[in-house]
Design a protein around this nucleic acid. Structure first.
Length: 208
DNA sequence: TATTAGATTGTCT
DNA sequence: GACAATCTAATAT
C-alpha cells in the first residue's frame, strides 16, 4: 500500500487547505466557503448542496452574537475552525455558521444560501412543500437548515471530519466571481461589506 | 414587484 | 421585558 501523503492525496490536501483558510479568520473563511459542498447524510440518504452565499461575523463586530464576549449561546464561535455554530433565529428558524479563526477568538461565517445538488426530493419533503421552484428551496439561512434538516443537535459538529454533516472542499468555476455587499437582516454595522456571494448565481437569497 | 404584519421562543440585560 | 444574523402570506401598486 502506498503511504497516504497529506500533500499528494487528492482527498486530504484540499481539506487541509480549506482548514487553513477557515483558521485565517471569518473574512477569509466566508470567501473560501463559496463553492464548497455541504453534505448531509440521513440514514442512507445523501443530501448535497453547494454554498453560494455567506456572511462574516467576528468579535469586533457590533452585529455579531459574540460582540461583547463569550456567552453560553455563542460559545462555539470561540472554538476551533471548522466547527458548527447553530442558533435559533426569531424563535422558529435555525441558522448555521462555520466557525473560523484560531481557537479562543469569536469568529464565524453564516451560511446564507446553498444550491441544491443531490437529494432534492428529500429537501422538498423536509421543507414541507412542493410545486415551487427549486431556487427557493434553500435561498436563506433558515431555509437551508430546514431543507437539510439541520437543528440544534448539529451544534459543535466538526465539519472537517467524516460524519453526518460535513464540508467537501470546492472551488468556483473559472467564470464565476465573488460579489461583496452589506449583510442582510441586521440592525448594527449595517454598512459593513461582509456578505459574500457568487455573482449572478440563481440560488442567492437576493440579487446583487 | 414592493411593502407589511404576524408567527414564536431562546437569550441576555 | 426587549429583541432577534427569518420566512411566509397577504395586501397594495
Amino acid at each position: 500500500m502506498p503511504r497516504r501523503s497529506p500533500v499528494r492525496d487528492p482527498e486530504v490536501a484540499p481539506l487541509e487547505h480549506l482548514r487553513g483558510e477557515l483558521q485565517a479568520g471569518a473574512l477569509v473563511a466566508a470567501r473560501a466557503l463559496l463553492g464548497c459542498i455541504l453534505e448531509r447524510r440521513i440514514g442512507r440518504a445523501v443530501l448535497r448542496a453547494r454554498i453560494v452565499e455567506t456572511e462574516a461575523y467576528s468579535q469586533d463586530d457590533p452585529a455579531s452574537h459574540c460582540y461583547g464576549g463569550q456567552t453560553p449561546r455563542n460559545a462555539p464561535m470561540f472554538g476551533r475552525a471548522g466547527l458548527t455554530y447553530v442558533y435559533v433565529s426569531y424563535g422558529m428558524h435555525r441558522c448555521m455558521n462555520v466557525v473560523a479563526g484560531v481557537e479562543g477568538t469569536g469568529e464565524a461565517a453564516l451560511l446564507r444560501a446553498v444550491e441544491p445538488l443531490q437529494g432534492i426530493d428529500r429537501m422538498i419533503a423536509a421543507r414541507g412543500w412542493q410545486g415551487k421552484p427549486v431556487r427557493q428551496l434553500a435561498n436563506g439561512p433558515g431555509k437551508l437548515c430546514a431543507a437539510l434538516s439541520i437543528g440544534l443537535e448539529h451544534n459543535w459538529v466538526d465539519l472537517l471530519a467524516d460524519g453526518e454533516l460535513r464540508l467537501i472542499p470546492g472551488r468556483l468555476d473559472p467564470q464565476e466571481t465573488i460579489i461583496v455587499t452589506p449583510r442582510i437582516g441586521i440592525s448594527k454595522a449595517v454598512d459593513w461589506p461582509r456578505r459574500f456571494a457568487i455573482s449572478g448565481n440563481l440560488y442567492l437569497s437576493r440579487r446583487g
